[in-house]
Write a protein that binds this DNA or RNA. Structure first.
Length: 334
DNA sequence: GGACGTGATGATTTGAGAGA
DNA sequence: TCTCTCAAATCATCACGTCC
C-alpha cells in the first residue's frame, strides 16, 4: 500500500469533521514558503481523493465493513434455511484462513433506517455472524427488480441452486408481481422453463418443499411428477403422513423426496410400487421368466444361457400378443 | 400477435452392472 | 480394480395450442 493511499485511508477513517479547518490553516498562508504551498497542494489532492472515495462507497463500488446483525435476508429468499450447513462450515474455514475474499451485495433497508437487505451473500453473512466477524459488503441503491436480478445472476454463476429452490424463488417473484421477463432474467432460463418452475412451485406446498429440502439430485421431471401426483384427492395428506414418519428426518433430502413421491403414487398405482418380482415356471418347475416392476418400467427377464432362443421366439410374437391384449382389455388403449 | 402453458424430443450426464 | 456398456435421469429446445 502506498503512503498516499495510507494517508487517504487514515483521513477517511478519521472522517471529514476531524480534518483541519480553513481557519486553523489561515496563519500558515501568511508564510508563503514553497514548502507550505506544496503542503497545500498535497492536502487538496487528499481532499479530492477523499471525496472520490466517499463517492465510490456511496455508489457501491467499494466494499465497507458491516455488522451482520444489521443485515436482513433478501425479501425474496432463494434457498432453504438450514439446508446448506456444510457450505457455511466451509465458508467459516475459508474466512479464518484467508478472510472474506468476496464481498456481499446489500441495499439500504427500504423501511428500517440503519439496516440493510441482502441481494446475495446469505451464507457469507451467516458464516461471519457465527464467527463474530464483520462482513464486507457493497452497499448499492437497488430497486426490487435489480435486487432479484443481481441475486439470480450471482446464483446462476455458481449454479448451486437445486430445481426446487429455483422453483420456489420463481414462485416468490411471480407472487411478488414481477414481470415474467424479469423472472426469466433472474433465473437465466427461457419462458418455458420459467413457466415450469412456477407451476411446480405452485403445486408443491411450501411446507412440503421445506420438509423435503434441497434434493440436489432431483430434477424437473421428478418434481413435475410429484406436482402432478399432488393434484389427486388425498395426496397431500398422504404426503404429510410420509413427512411425519420416524425415519423421515434421518433420510437425505433426495431420499425424503423419494419417500414422499412413493407415498403419493401409492394412491394412483397401489400395485406398482409394491409389486414383487413375479416368476413363471414350466410344468417341471423350472423358472422360465421373471417380471420386475420398478418406478417406470416393467422388465421381463429370461435366462440367456438356457433360453436365448425362447426369448427371441417371445419377441417375435409380442406384436400379436399386444393386439390380442388390446382387444381383451377395455382400458388398455388409453 | 404476443405471452404463456404443455408435451415431445434429442443431447448430455450419471450411475449401476457386467466382463476382462 | 478398471473399463465398457447401457439405462435412467436431466436439461435445453422445439412445436403447437390457448388465452387475452
Amino acid at each position: 500500500m502506498s503512503k498516499r493511499t495510507q494517508s487517504v485511508r487514515n483521513l477517511f477513517a478519521a472522517g471529514p469533521d476531524e480534518a483541519p479547518t480553513a481557519d486553523t490553516r489561515q496563519p500558515m498562508q501568511r508564510v508563503a514558503s514553497g514548502a507550505v504551498r506544496s503542503l497545500k497542494d498535497t492536502f487538496s489532492e487528499v481532499e479530492r481523493d477523499y471525496e472520490e472515495l466517499k463517492q465510490k462507497v456511496a455508489d457501491g463500488a467499494l466494499p465497507i465493513d458491516l455488522d451482520p446483525s444489521l443485515i436482513d435476508p433478501s425479501p425474496f429468499a432463494d434457498r432453504f434455511a438450514d439446508q446448506d450447513a456444510s457450505a457455511v462450515e466451509a465458508l467459516k474455514a475459508s474466512f479464518l484462513e484467508h478472510g472474506q475474499e468476496i464481498p456481499i451485495l446489500v441495499r439500504a433497508h427500504p423501511t428500517e433506517i440503519g439496516r440493510y437487505q441482502i441481494s446475495y451473500g446469505h451464507r457469507r453473512v451467516r458464516a461471519a455472524t457465527e464467527l463474530g466477524l464483520k462482513v464486507k459488503a457493497y452497499v448499492r441503491e437497488l430497486s426490487d427488480d435489480r435486487l432479484v436480478v443481481a441475486q439470480g445472476i450471482e446464483n446462476s454463476a455458481r449454479e448451486d441452486l437445486t430445481f426446487i429452490e429455483r422453483s420456489m424463488f420463481a414462485l416468490k417473484l411471480e407472487e411478488g408481481g414481477f414481470e415474467r421477463t424479469l423472472i426469466q432474467t433472474a433465473l437465466s432460463v427461457d419462458r418455458q422453463e420459467a413457466s415450469k418452475l412456477i407451476n411446480v412451485g405452485r403445486a408443491v406446498p411450501g411446507w412440503l418443499a421445506e420438509a423435503i429440502g434441497r434434493a440436489p439430485k432431483i430434477g424437473r421431471p421428478r418434481w413435475q411428477e410429484l406436482a402432478d401426483g399432488l393434484k389427486n384427492a388425498g395426496a397431500e395428506s398422504k404426503a404429510r403422513k410420509a413427512t411425519t414418519d420416524k425415519s423421515f428426518g434421518h433420510k437425505t433430502s433426495d431420499d425424503r423426496f423419494i419417500a414422499v413421491l412413493r407415498a403419493i403414487k401409492a394412491i394412483d398405482r397401489p400395485s406398482a410400487e409394491k409389486t414383487p418380482v413375479l416368476s413363471v415356471k414350466s410344468a417341471e418347475g423350472t423358472k422360465i421368466a421373471t417380471l420386475a416392476v420398478s418406478g417406470r418400467v416393467c422388465k421381463i427377464e429370461i435366462d440367456r444361457d438356457r433360453d436365448e432362443a425362447f426369448a427371441k421366439f417371445v419377441m417375435d410374437r409380442i406384436p400379436d400378443l399386444y393386439e390380442k391384449f388390446r382387444q381383451t382389455e377395455p382400458g388398455s388403449e388409453g
